[in-house]
Design a binder for these strands. Sequence first.
DNA 1: TCTGGGGTCCTAGGACCC
DNA 2: TCTGGGGTCCTAGGACCC
Length: 422
Amino acid sequence: MRAIALIDCNNFYVSCERLFQPGLEGKPVVVLSNNDGCVVSRSQEVKDLGLKMAAPWFQLKDLAKRHGIIAFSSNYTLYADLSNRVMRLLSQWSPDQEVYSIDECFLDLTGMADLTQYAQTIRSTIKQCVGIPVCIGIAPSKTLAKLANHVAKKQKHYDSVCDFNAMTARELDTLLAQIEVGEVWGVGRRSTSRLQGMGIVTVLELKRSSAKRVRAEFGVVMERIVAELNGVACLELDDVTPPRQQIICSRSFGMPVTLLADLEQAVIAYTSRAAEKLRDQHSLAGGIQVYIRTNPHKEKDPQYQQAMLLHLFEPTDDTRLLCRAALSGLQQVYRSGYAYQKAGVMLTEIIAAAARPRTLFDDVAAQQKSAALMETLDHINRRMGSGTVQLLGEGVRKIWAMRRGNVSQRYTTEWGELVVVR
DNA sequence: TCTGGGGTCCTAGGACCC
DNA sequence: TCTGGGGTCCTAGGACCC
């Protein structure tokens, strides 16, 4: 039988913070989104308090004070590094790995003997070598593996590993009858309430529903989910990550921004980040979209949002050319008299750098100069830290920069921020 | 009275995920 | 005062073509 494992780090960002401050073990801890906006990771103690995922932090401050909740700003440099360590280690247990997100991956364990024991070994090795606790679900399809992982997390007697393949069909169905349909991977809020309206409330009911009816009501995506619940693997492991088809960099500002000059700085900064990602995957972009918006939560304020897509003369990965286009778009959508809360850029029409279309009019010398300059820029910033060299247009004062009230150190990637042991 | 059929490409919007 | 960021896939509808 096919055996697909889903390994998921427990409260990943919180676990990363605790790793370097072990005194926080057992205490309620949250990690906040950019700008300290929402709660994006909660320790078990915080979940037990009933605090919801993605809740706005400013509404919770009183509650947090009462319960002594410790809040961290997000530190993606740290999380990405620890994630890489976990993933690299996990890749040793199977030739077939799909890194699905920063804190979870699929492994194909088909053919391995004694899977529960095998998974326990994986778990304890990750804990010992990196220090991050994980849960593991095993099943014949990805969708079921996600569910098995959910069970491993919620039902303590499974000891963090749940293998559906080791159960009888009847045992599995009994378990599925206890889980709400909204827990299924790919069934979001909208579909949940529509399914409930059709009388499909539990996972077992969805599993047993008619494929034809589901297809007619919801389309092929839901039809596939039902097949996967029945143990028919429709989704393969993607072990090579294809290059992104779009690259987005957008951010809310630390304070409302009204001046075009400040928006220009932000747009140059975001375009620069996006262009770095573009070059990282050896691609060129043929288009760039820029957008700005006011704060939709402030209903009393005048609202405005506008986006503009610009097509470049030819595909490029040169930060300067992308910025020039982005700025021209920004100047066209900008209206004075609004308090802007967010800006963003999106690179589109992405192609492989190797597939750059050649024309009679190519200025090869200019292209080579551009490539050399971008390579040097990236090299310095990789070596000396991001932002060491930047376009002057990004500005220095940066009043729009995001708030990060309590960010931890980059313990694993900066010499100056290593842990100090007394 | 009656106005083809089939295909592609693009865009916008919806839904979902972490 | 204060509400994240980055991505994918699917569908419907319009434009256009032969």
